[in-house]
């Protein structure tokens, strides 16, 4: 499948700003999907609201672009109604972790089969750069003009604690690793989260002396620490700037039975 078999070419170029990490995540997803030889007609892309949540509308497949924060809930119903379809959720840090936080943790807990790609740009991109639940401490945003007084969430660690089957976090500077993790997630049953720390040069970078996408990528590179090598317990390396680093790598890879298997609506045997 060529790139523009995968995407809706008539909608190109997409709306994302120059240098926005969303497009990079799309590349890695397409690459993983294509290498697995998956079928677009059997996959539904679900999202909430935000720049990152626009991605499904660009893919040449069924897309459910929903309300802010609720993508996982929409996807849960869809999966139970049509267990034979593969569900991929594209979401953002605000969408998944703030307004959708309850659906997120309960989605992990239920372990309904879906792959959630959360593009964590540490900001509310679409609404113009307000602080999100992952904005690093002390950083600038339009709603934290004196620096962020709060501390960020660690979405990946939350997903592990809440029961997701597979959790990995990479940055847009780690395209090969990210592609590999997406492949693993696609092939795995249960609730899988891939968190991608990504750049929003327009609304995060510019306000934090990183207006250039490349500077942000360099920042990710400098501050990323492999999970095996991370300093100490989870609480110590929560997110960018809590301990001054992003922990990257696989956080968990386990095989809890997924919900639709337990309730017996699993109609498809093998996954592709």
């Amino acid at each position: 499948m060529e790139v523009f078999d995968f995407y809706r070419k008539d909608r190109w170029p997409h709306v994302f700003c120059p240098g926005c990490g969303n497009g990079t995540v799309m590349n890695c997803f397409y690459r993983a999907f294509n290498e697995l030889g998956w079928n677009l007609d059997n996959t539904v892309f679900v999202s909430g609201i935000g720049c990152s949540s626009r991605i499904p509308l660009y893919i040449n497949a069924d897309a459910l672009h929903t309300t802010h924060g609720r993508a996982v809930a929409f996807a849960s119903g869809l999966k139970l109604a049509r267990p034979e379809l593969d569900i991929v959720v594209f979401t953002g840090d605000g969408d998944l972790g703030a307004i959708g936080g309850n659906h997120f943790i309960n989605g992990c807990r239920r372990n309904i089969d879906m792959d959630v790609i959360c593009i964590n740009n540490n900001i509310y991109g679409m609404t113009g750069g307000q602080a999100s639940i992952t904005t690093p401490h002390d950083f600038q945003s339009t709603t934290t003009p004196y620096g962020n007084r709060e501390y960020p969430f660690d979405l990946a660690e939350i997903a592990v604690a809440a029961g997701a089957n597979y959790v990995a976090r990479w940055t847009t500077r780690h395209v090969h690793e990210l592609t590999k993790s997406i492949k693993i997630a696609l092939e795995k049953k249960g609730f899988n989260l891939i968190e991608v720390v990504s750049q929003c040069p327009t609304n995060f970078g510019r306000r934090n002396k990183m207006g250039d996408a490349s500077i942000m990528l360099e920042w990710f590179k400098e501050n990323s620490v492999r999970r095996e090598k991370a300093r100490s317990a989870a609480v110590d390396h929560v997110d960018l700037n809590l301990a001054g680093q992003v922990t990257i790598g696989e956080f968990v890879n386990r095989d809890r039975e997924c919900y639709q298997e337990r309730i017996g609506v699993e109609k498809h045997g093998e996954k592709h």
């Binding site: 539904v44 679900v46 069924d62 459910l64 929903t66 309300t67 609720r70 809930a73 929409f74 996807a75 849960s76 119903g77 869809l78 999966k79 139970l80 109604a81 049509r82 379809l85 309850n102 659906h103 309960n106 639709q260 309730i263 017996g264 609506v265």
Partner: peptide
Amino acid sequence: LPEVGGAFLQMEDEIACVSAIIGASWGGV
């Protein structure tokens, strides 16, 4: 519902309930 081959899901709140049934409806049920 399980008796007739359907699925029941207790959600975390009512926002999730409507969201889930919309998702299911798009699956054609």
